[in-house]
């Protein structure tokens, strides 16, 4: 685990350490079981194609969970995730490399907390942003 990041360490434009994932169809099935999302476009190719899709696609919320991990890995034990919002803009396919990234857009104090707002996104190997969003976290301050 990385060392605890503090509010003072962060500046606007600071980049979050990226997180890379490569979900397989097996991982999609694990996610289906863990999340209760059994919609068959995520494991049955024929069904996915009958819905007009090129094949099985990765659950949007699995990618959102990767973005959640990007944030919790970064903010450490003393940080707090306040908000995570994301839009599913494109599809990810099993076997593809997905890289989650984030960049600080604002830092401010509110409700007695040292808050940091970040742009977050997931991109495929071609650099296309398939999930984009925004997060607000609170970080500890050195005081």
């Amino acid at each position: 685990m990385a060392e605890q990041v503090y509010y003072e360490d962060v500046t606007e434009e600071s980049e979050l350490p990226p997180l890379t994932k490569q979900p397989t169809t097996r991982q999609l099935v694990m996610w289906a079981g863990a999340s209760g999302d059994y919609y068959a476009i995520h494991y049955d190719k024929d069904f996915a194609q009958s819905k007009g899709l090129p094949g099985v696609i990765v659950h949007g919320q699995l990618v959102a969970s990767f973005l959640g991990q990007l944030l919790t890995d970064w903010i450490g034990k003393q940080g707090k995730l306040i908000k995570l919002a994301c839009s599913y803009k494109g599809m990810n396919f099993p076997g593809e490399t997905i890289t989650c990234r984030g960049k600080v857009s604002k830092k401010y104090i509110e409700d007695g907390e040292h808050r940091v707002e970040c742009h977050i996104w997931a991109e495929n190997a071609k650099g296309e942003k398939t999930v984009i969003g925004k997060a607000i976290v609170a970080l500890p301050a050195r005081g």
Partner: peptide
């Protein structure tokens, strides 16, 4: 799925 906005 279009979007998710979670407040914790």
């Amino acid at each position: 799925h279009g979007s998710t906005e979670l407040e914790c």
